[in-house]
Amino acid sequence: MADDYATTFQIVDVDGDGLISIPELSRLMEVLGEPITPEAAQAAVARIDVDGDGLISLEEFAGFLSRHRAG
């Protein structure tokens, strides 16, 4: 399942460390024309972050998207 989302994840993971941080999520939303506050970005990461490390792994990202996929 994670492989299905790996390309998208890599685009968001700007620094290439294998994790999406709050600043990376904020930047994504800004680029998409939907800027969010740092607090909103932190809350979004917290909703997706299963292991509680404050970052989004590929597995967490894929799991979230697969659960919330429109269709």
Rank of each mutant, 00 (worst) to 15 (best):
A62S: 10
P38V: 01
S57P: 00
A44N: 08
E30S: 11
E30Y: 11
E60L: 04
D51A: 01
A62V: 07
L25I: 03
V45I: 02
E39F: 06
G71T: 12
G18R: 11
R67A: 09
A6E: 11
T8V: 13
V50E: 12
P23L: 07
P35F: 03
E24F: 02
G16F: 13
Q42H: 11
D3E: 14
A2Y: 06
Y5G: 03
E60C: 00
R47I: 06
V31N: 13
I22H: 05
I48G: 00
P35S: 08
T37C: 07
E34K: 06
A46F: 09
E59G: 10
G63M: 05
P35D: 08
P38T: 02
A40D: 15
I20D: 02
I36Q: 02
P35M: 06
D53N: 14
D49Y: 14
P38N: 09
E24V: 00
L58A: 00
Y5R: 04
I48Y: 03
E39R: 11
E34C: 04
I11R: 13
D53M: 07
G71V: 13
A44V: 09
G52A: 05
A43C: 09
E59V: 14
I22C: 05
E24T: 00
E60N: 04
M29F: 14
L55V: 08
S21I: 01
G33Y: 05
D3R: 11
G18M: 11
S66K: 15
V45W: 02
H68T: 08
V45P: 01
I48D: 00
P23S: 09
V12M: 06
D17H: 07
E60K: 04
D15W: 02
E34D: 08
F61S: 03
L28E: 00
A70N: 08
D15Q: 03
D15E: 05
I20G: 01
